[in-house]
């Protein structure tokens, strides 16, 4: 499926490009209020229309992409950065007490969906984008820890790991030198999937007011504002939602495409 890889990469780079571009240029400013131009449908001057303050939706979407991508990306980094070493360690000490603690800890975190963590954090520290990052990031830790541990456990059974042990290499060194490179594909694919889930989670959190706070634009926040206006101006609700769907779809297609492209079994079949 080269198609999904191409489509996914195109969609993803479109949004990442728009987010980067928004640092230097947007069609309109997003801070001004222009009541005269409020709730315009899409036309030539405002390609995606305007919201209830008369702000240009295209500009809002571009700046909002920044928030979504930043939150989701940092959260994935957090999950990978902690989850992968934990998974590697647990696998290297499989069956030991450390493994047990890591795995039980994982199970425990799985009982706290991102939203619940966000609720707890917000209740204590107040809302904000950082909370969203922490909430989504914490939930990503067990995802990567489990994936890494599972993959590493099956690799530890392989004879080439045994050969490395016979060659006197320590478990830590084997983990870094032999295990991790052989898990890289798996982690990249899961990374894109978690990235897309992060975009969805961030949208949900900012929709209920637990994510980025005004005046920072975010897609979820835009939808929350649009909710009361759905009946009179559907485009203010439809457009940010479409942005989320396309971004997530792009990342998922990219993940699928990468999995097929990186899978050595599939690669071996094509000369």
């Amino acid at each position: 499926m080269r198609l999904s890889l191409a489509l996914g990469a195109t969609l993803t780079s479109l949004f990442v490009g728009a987010a980067l571009l928004s640092f230097i240029w947007t069609p309109y400013g997003i801070t001004g209020v222009n009541i005269a131009a409020r709730l315009h449908s899409p036309d030539m001057s405002n390609l995606l229309g305007t919201d209830h303050f008369g702000r240009d939706l295209l500009s809002m979407i571009m700046v909002g992409a920044r928030t979504s991508i930043a939150v989701a990306l940092i959260a994935v980094g957090l999950g990978m950065g902690l989850g992968v070493p934990l998974g590697l360690t647990a696998a290297a000490r499989a069956g030991g007490w450390l493994d047990e603690i890591v795995m039980r800890g994982n199970d425990l975190i799985f009982a706290f969906p991102s939203l619940v963590i966000a609720i707890l954090i917000t209740a204590v520290f107040g809302p904000g984008a950082v909370n969203a990052i922490i909430a989504i990031g914490i939930f990503n830790i067990p995802v990567f820890a489990r994936l890494t541990r599972g993959g590493a456990l099956s690799l530890w059974q392989r004879d080439f790991i045994l050969a490395a042990r016979v060659a006197g290499k320590s478990a830590a060194r084997i983990s870094v030198e032999h295990i991790l490179p052989n898990l890289a594909n798996l982690l990249i694919v899961q990374g894109t999937i978690q990235f897309s889930l992060g975009i969805l989670a961030e949208a949900g959190l900012s929709y209920v007011g637990l994510g980025a706070q005004p005046p920072i634009p975010s897609w979820g926040r835009m939808l929350a504002d649009a909710q009361t206006m759905v009946a009179i101006a559907p485009h203010v609700a439809v457009i940010p939602g479409m942005a989320i769907v396309l971004m997530v779809l792009g990342l998922n297609l990219l993940g699928d495409g990468l999995r097929d492209a990186l899978d050595p079994r599939l690669r071996g079949r094509k000369p």
């Binding site: 949208a203 949900g204 929709y207 909710q227 759905v230 609700a237 939602g241 997530v248 779809l249 998922n252």
Partner: peptide, 14 residues
């Protein structure tokens, strides 16, 4: 593929 990309609260609004 489309279903997975759908934010449930937005879908609810639709």
């Amino acid at each position: 593929q489309l279903g997975i990309a759908l934010p449930n609260f937005w879908f609810a609004m639709l």
